[in-house]
């Protein structure tokens, strides 16, 4: 995947991303509202379960003092969904692009990039709305937004790497798709979205380590720190995230590069 080639086709990347954003919501009456409705409905469901069924104590932000579970939930859910939906849709886009791949020569990675870009835009809008909610709840997140953006950039790098590797593998083996579905579900529960490892997993150091160091868990912890607790993630966290992001992206790009020349005959 040469940089020159990708640059020459930047117009294609732009238009593919735009197409992705447009076609996704064009058919619906509510349009863009749908993209917000999904996380909101999940928030309502999980908040009821958390607060009324399990009667759990909401996590308390340190030093922010915020104690609203629905906000805690959304801060974790939005970046996780960005990751999982990007990978799922990218796998479908490469397989679904068979007609194009067989008939036209173009950089196949743009199929993946355009999905990640479109999902990134969606995520930014969701975080925009969430920022307003956090401000209303009394969390002064505005100065922390640049830090959030930094974490999100790393998350995007990581997501792109996974999407490249799995969408390429999915061309050769169609059950990669199902395996990914299961993996995504495991990751969802291994990531502190619907629970707070500090309180709910207080006596389980082993489980705490899993939530802390699995890739998506680590990203979500960092974003909780920035948006919920209002503090800077530690240097250890930053280096860990940087290493897995760059490493995953490099692997994904390498794998895609190896596998994509045969797409036209395998699809």
């Amino acid at each position: 995947m040469s940089v020159g080639n990708a640059l020459a086709h930047r117009n294609l990347l732009y238009l593919l991303s735009l197409k992705e954003l447009r076609t996704r919501y064009r058919k619906s009456i509510l349009g863009w509202a749908w993209s917000l409705l999904n996380p909101l409905s999940q928030m309502v469901i999980f908040s009821i379960i958390f607060i009324y069924v399990f009667q759990a104590e909401p996590p308390v932000g340190d030093p922010s003092g915020l104690d609203k579970f629905p906000l805690y939930f959304l801060i974790g859910l939005i970046p996780f969904q960005f990751f999982s939906i990007s990978v799922t849709v990218a796998m479908g886009a490469v397989r679904g692009g068979a007609a194009l791949i067989k008939k036209v020569a173009f950089p196949h990675e743009h199929l993946v990039f355009s999905i990640v870009i479109a999902q990134f835009v969606t995520m930014l809008i969701e975080f925009g709305v969430l920022t307003v909610a956090l401000l209303i709840a009394g969390n002064m997140v505005l100065p922390w937004l640049p830090v959030l953006l930094g974490v999100l950039m790393l998350l995007t790098l990581f997501t792109t790497g996974v999407a490249l590797a799995l969408s390429a593998a999915n061309v050769y083996f169609h059950d990669v798709n199902y395996l990914w579905g299961i993996t995504a579900q495991i990751l969802f529960y291994a990531t502190p979205i619907i629970y707070d490892p500090g309180t709910q997993l207080a006596g389980q150091p082993w489980l705490q380590q899993i939530t802390n160091y699995n890739p998506t868990g680590s990203f979500v912890r960092a974003i909780h720190e920035v948006m919920y607790d209002l503090r800077m993630p530690g240097l250890g966290r930053w280096s860990y995230l940087a290493i897995i992001s760059v490493g995953t992206f490099a692997f994904g790009a390498w794998a895609f590069d190896k596998l994509s020349p045969r797409f036209a005959e395998e699809l």
Binding site: L15, L16, K19, A99, L100, K103, V104
Partner: peptide, 20 residues
């Protein structure tokens, strides 16, 4: 090849042109 059924002819001209 690569026409997007949901998009208009106008949008498809841009998209297909970019693909080419």
């Amino acid at each position: 090849a690569g026409f997007e059924p949901e998009l208009s002819g106008r949008d498809n001209i841009h998209l297909n042109g970019a693909i080419l």
